[in-house]
Amino acid sequence: MTLPFGALRAFEAAARLSSFSRAGDELRVTHAAISHQIRHLEEWFGRALFLREKRGVRLAPEAKSFAETLSSSLERISAEAELLKLRTRSEITVGCIPSIATRWLIPSLSDFLAKHPDVTIKVVYAMAEQRLRETGCDVLITLGADTFEGVVCHQLFSRATQPVASPRYLERKGSIDHATQIATADLLHDETTAHWAQWLDKAGVPLTPTLRGPVFQDFNLLATAAIAGHGVALCPVELCRREIENGDLIVLSDIAILAQESYFLICRASPQKSISAFCTWFKSVIE
């Protein structure tokens, strides 16, 4: 007769708890089921493993070492099972600058999760100046390439930045289709007035001593203000492609600045399968 492995779990619980009833509660079976399993195991050993007493049961002294070994082994098996479970269900931490997270990543994320139900995605904010090894992320979606060794950079789209405004602003202010008209419009600034100064200089418009208009700390705030009709903003046209295609924003000039810069998806070289799948998916999203 082979060792009844099915009875070992009942024996371990009963030995650890010194009770058939509590072992049954833990394993969600009856006291009688535990007793049956223990008797089956005792028949295999040819000896009693528990001393039956009026107030309950007590582990036989000669079975103590076996019970301790079994308990330790089951703990190791449980730990290995948890590790296997984690390896089967991958977690990817994606660091993403807010402008891309709100426009491209989050709106499409359900599509990736539907295609990869065993992958858990954790999305965290990344600053534009951060690089992959500084974030502790598996994937970084940001402005600029990463020059550190051991990483792969996938170019997503250009940062070419042009003036845009909402239809409601143009309805209120009239047609704006020349650089001099843009210069006198209500200008909206992203963190600093420097980009508007750069654009006006490229457009050949004389700079005023002070560029007026509200300054927004975050690009998402700037874009919201532009869509709401508060003025003309400088926005990366590829980043705001959906707003432009939907008609929420209208490009006012072909003159662009920052065209030499790009947004990138960055990961380690030879990434694990789930990370590679995410990178391939996201690149398809922004195409």
Rank of each mutant, 00 (worst) to 15 (best):
A32R: 13
S284D: 14
A79W: 04
E68W: 02
A160E: 15
A126C: 04
S72G: 11
Q130F: 02
G231L: 02
A145C: 02
Q37V: 00
V232N: 03
H154D: 13
L105V: 15
R76Q: 12
A269M: 08
I38G: 10
A114V: 00
V285L: 02
L51R: 15
V29Y: 02
V152Y: 01
H40M: 12
V152T: 14
V29R: 09
F66C: 01
E53F: 00
L70Q: 08
A126Y: 03
I77Y: 10
G174M: 05
H154T: 10
S175L: 14
G204P: 11
P236Y: 04
E68H: 04
N246T: 05
L200Y: 08
V123G: 04
A7W: 00
A226D: 06
H230K: 14
F45W: 13
E26C: 10
A256I: 02
P206D: 08
I121Q: 04
R22F: 07
L105Y: 05
E42L: 07
R87F: 10
D190F: 13
T147H: 12
R16M: 09
R55S: 13
L3E: 11
G46M: 06
D25Y: 09
S21F: 09
R131W: 04
F45P: 07
L41S: 05
E53Q: 15
A223T: 08
L8N: 10
